[in-house]
Design a protein around this nucleic acid. Structure first.
Lengths: 215, 215
DNA sequence: GACAGATATATCGGCAAGATATATCTGGGA
DNA sequence: TCCCAGATATATCTTGCCGATATATCTGTC
């Protein structure tokens, strides 16, 4: 069973979110684009002005988007961006490429890995904080789900959109289950420490080494 | 139920991985540190030389690590880095802070969200590719699990280390289940398209809008 | 003896993320 | 009516992150 090796991230992907959002949501300003992204794919994709505005200029230079300036007072001029036919083709080309895997850092896991350097209570407290945050995210997803159900009903792409929400909710629930298991492990470690009041330094273990040999 | 709002990432966290690895694995070179990180926390945390070497210099300037130069031929000198007592204190201080949440981009979800712009077959092919990659990751985790079971047995921190593997395996399995559901949704959409051969442009839907209003 | 691969240090460029500066318009309360 | 908070809109800066690459030496194997 040959394992597909997905490509790493290289290319600037802001371009494609812009093309996608202009394709799905119609013409918009850079500001509107930002809000639009935050309100639709914001749970798994973020863009800042520092990326959007240069990306829009680059896309325009390539003829993938065009802009009309809606005149206003100075400091109030708004450029309305639209996707071109070539822009749609470029979006489709990108959508066909295998999605790049994100290596994604996870600070919680890092702190768990090094948890031997602090008291179990510290780690338990942090697990509780993360649990609360995950519950908050889950509640947010559910709220969004209810909102989308009404707003997007009948749109042929709605099933795709809800699938991304499904992903978020499923992973949040999985995280909650893992946190519960992690709590058990940390508590167990606390009992072991209480029984034999050694410091963090392991002394009973003989050749037990940390994984990932040094050299 | 007050929702804990976890902090966003700001600070350079390379520092703390370095401190953690030197604390757990003993003195190492920058090169060894890199391998050590890749072999232990590499599944959820990556560091490159471009981050490690400057970080080591910074930590040394703060007195959190020290180095001894093990002499060698030019181009072969090795600096062995060790954590200091103040370095351990700094590590513990950081471990007590609530872990920052990673917003993490997900290119697969982005392509699912915009999947209406391409044929269902394209999306199905990509789902299969991702599935294969996830299966490969899962196999890697299981192999690592077996390896660690022998290597780290008896070490008091081993339960923490395995917990991070548990996380990876659990999430990989959850991803596989989601992919199966996603496949179902995409296939359903394919049937709908075949039945009414409309283009990507939705025309039947009345006021069904994309979520995340523009302005 | 040749040569691939491991050991070891170092830096560059492009992407990403958030903060911030600036200016104007809009709606609601005092 | 005035004022001001908040929304609309564009733009840039800093820091961090990630991979690629350059350089040089040592080691083991065919």
């Amino acid at each position: 069973m040959a394992i597909a090796r997905l490509p790493r991230v290289r290319e600037n992907r802001t371009r494609y979110v812009v093309l996608g959002m202009l394709s799905t949501g119609g013409p918009m300003t850079g500001y509107g684009l930002r809000n639009s992204i935050a309100g639709s794919v914001g749970n798994f994709w973020q863009e800042s002005y520092g990326q959007l505005y240069p990306a829009l200029r680059g896309l325009a230079a390539e003829g993938l988007v065009t802009s009309k300036t809606s005149p206003g007072a100075p400091g109030r001029e708004a450029r309305i961006w639209s996707i071109t036919a070539r822009g749609r083709a470029e979006l489709a080309r990108w959508l066909e490429l295998p999605p790049a895997m994100e290596p994604a850092r996870n600070e919680l896991l890092l702190k768990i890995y090094f948890a031997g350097a602090v008291a179990p209570e510290v780690t338990l407290a942090n697990l509780t904080r993360v649990e609360s945050a995950v519950r908050g995210m889950l509640a947010g997803y559910q709220q969004l789900d209810a909102h989308w159900e009404a707003e997007t009903a009948g749109h042929p792409d709605a099933p795709y959109w809800r699938l991304t929400l499904d992903f978020g909710m499923t992973f949040a629930r999985t995280a909650l289950e893992w946190i519960e298991r992690a709590r058990g492990v940390v508590r167990e470690r606390g009992k072991a420490r209480a029984a034999s009041p050694t410091r963090s330094k392991p002394q009973g273990a003989k050749a037990a080494a940390r994984p990932g040999g040094t050299r």
